[in-house]
């Protein structure tokens, strides 16, 4: 049980897929212009990652080594199709804003990476724990980037205005360049945290 807990917790912070491993950047940057879009994307990815990790782990002895990547991709694509149609039925407005980026979860390298590196070698329970941890880490990163961009670019969070009518929005944050630059700055902050921790350990 402690083992599963370790796998779960490492994906959230120590091996955060976005801030530490820098994976899955395409959906990360494209949908984080508001907090609600970011969360919808994160939840869809959560579902796909958990489902495909469990399935890949169940079938790990049946899938021949030579065609494993294509099999994983087809499993992932099936779950993404389910997620796409579910979002369309439940929250059509958000689905419209996310647009082509829901189907593009298929080629999110983070998901394929977890199947190849973890789910195909471990038991179902461990694979599920790892998937949940990684997906929550991804959701966390999406939420941070989405809310920072929405607050700076629109002066609101979840569509609720924060600063009153006199706030001058920093529009570029909602546009593509803002996504690149803000993620760069967040990575910079994470580098700074890591370095500070290392120097603390070194100096006792």
């Amino acid at each position: 049980m402690a083992n599963a807990y370790d796998e779960f917790i490492k994906g959230i912070w120590k091996e955060n897929p976005v801030f530490v491993q820098v994976l899955g950047m395409c959906p990360m940057l494209a949908v984080t212009n508001s907090a609600i879009n970011a969360i919808a994307m994160g939840v869809a990815t959560f579902f796909v990652l958990l489902g495909s990790s469990i399935l890949v782990s169940l079938f790990k002895n049946l899938i021949p080594k030579q065609v494993r990547i294509s099999s994983y991709i087809i499993i992932i694509a099936t779950f993404v199709t389910v997620a796409d149609y579910t979002l369309l039925a439940l929250i059509p407005e958000v689905h419209k804003e996310l647009g082509a980026f829901v189907p593009l979860i298929v080629v999110n390298c983070m998901i394929l990476g977890r199947q190849e590196a973890f789910a195909s070698k471990n038991s179902v329970g461990l694979a599920a724990a790892d998937a949940v941890g990684t997906a929550i880490g991804f959701l966390f990163a999406l939420f941070i980037l989405g809310s920072v961009r929405e607050i700076l670019g629109n002066g609101s969070l979840f569509g609720i205005s924060l600063f009153g009518p006199h706030f001058e929005p920093w529009v570029v944050m909602l546009l593509p360049p803002g996504g690149f630059i803000m993620l760069g700055l967040i990575l910079l902050f994470f580098n700074w945290l890591t370095e500070k921790k290392e120097s603390l350990i070194k100096n006792g």
């Binding site: 820098v22 570029v172 546009l175 593509p176 360049p177 803002g178 996504g179 690149f180 630059i181 993620l183 760069g184 700055l185 990575l187 910079l188 580098n191 700074w192 370095e195």
Partner: peptide
């Protein structure tokens, strides 16, 4: 600067390029 090396630097360069493409 040491902290900027790697992906953080590339992301900010990409941001400026993206600004230019706008």
């Amino acid at each position: 600067p040491n902290l900027m090396k790697g992906t953080a630097m590339s992301l900010i360069i990409a941001g400026i390029l993206s600004l230019a493409f706008m």
